[in-house]
Write a protein that binds this DNA or RNA. Structure first.
Length: 269
DNA sequence: ATGGTTGTTTAACAA
């Protein structure tokens, strides 16, 4: 039987600065596919050589000018770009998808953070975030059925009560408002995706993937949020078995860490 | 209740 396929999602917050972090992570965890968000570099600036040396020579990427956003998929196996739904009305570099030799599609999304004020009338960035969330469900509904798809990324929404350190205190904080959490769940269900984290870990258990840089001691205060996600559709779950789901906390610490920890899922079959 | 940090690109902006 073939060994499991290990897929990672990581908001790296500048891939040029943190290529060494990716390198130590890849050496320790040996993932087959690494999906990155907030690469913050244009395509010509991507550290391809470092990824080749990590054993991830196949890279598809989408960067933009100005040092914002940017997504990439790096893989041990060959990748073939596939079309994605049009989710970003601003045309930013927030989505990329590729097909593996097995036919499994990996979709990588960096959803807008949405600014600080949770009011679409007062905050254009929040309006954009809600629009992106609303496009997600219908966008995926139009894609061909029966294709195995795994969707990963920094979706910048913590949907459940135990996806944040304090449900009550975060209800009016962007990332956990009902406007966002309801849209995310509605879109996920409309697109027939399953939330791998909550298949693997009961909803009663706290799960975080992001901790603010602004805390004096992020681990001690542990005021985290689960902003990063791994979803799988029915076709994928019928074909493969989820062997593990992990949040790699160690990489939130160490040398110049991203404010997001990497997530991994192993699928076999 | 407020401010706290980081990265990119150059004083401001996004997160």
């Amino acid at each position: 039987m073939a060994p499991p396929l290990k897929i990672v999602s990581w908001n790296i917050n500048s891939v040029r600065l943190r290529a060494p972090n990716v390198e130590t992570f890849v050496a320790a965890e040996r993932p087959d596919v690494v999906c990155l968000q907030e690469t913050k570099c244009q395509d010509g600036e991507f550290p391809l050589k470092a990824f080749r040396e990590m054993g991830l020579p196949h890279v598809v990427m989408r960067g933009q000018r100005g040092g914002h956003a940017g997504v990439a998929i790096a893989s041990r196996l060959p990748l073939e770009l596939v079309d994605m739904p049009d989710l970003c009305r601003e045309g930013q570099a927030r989505t990329i998808a590729a097909r593996l030799p097995s036919g499994l599609e990996v979709h990588n999304i960096y959803l807008p953070a949405g600014g600080d004020i949770p009011d679409p009338a007062a905050n254009e960035k929040f309006a954009h975030k809600l629009d992106f969330l609303e496009r997600l469900g219908p966008g995926y509904k139009t894609l061909k059925k029966g294709v195995k798809r795994i969707l990963v990324g920094d979706l910048n929404v913590a949907p459940h009560e135990n996806d944040v350190w304090s449900h009550k205190q975060l209800l009016s904080i962007v990332s956990h408002t009902p406007e966002e959490t309801e849209r995310l769940e509605a879109s996920r269900k409309a697109a027939a995706f399953h939330d791998i984290a909550r298949l693997a870990v009961p909803e009663t258990q706290k799960l975080y993937t992001w901790w603010s840089y602004r805390a004096a001691d992020w681990a001690a205060s542990n005021r985290g949020r689960r902003l990063d996600h791994i979803w799988a559709n029915k076709a994928a779950l019928e074909d493969v078995k989820v062997e593990s789901y992990r949040i790699h906390l160690a990489w939130r610490g160490g040398w110049k860490p991203s404010d997001h920890a990497p997530l991994s899922v192993e699928v076999s079959g």
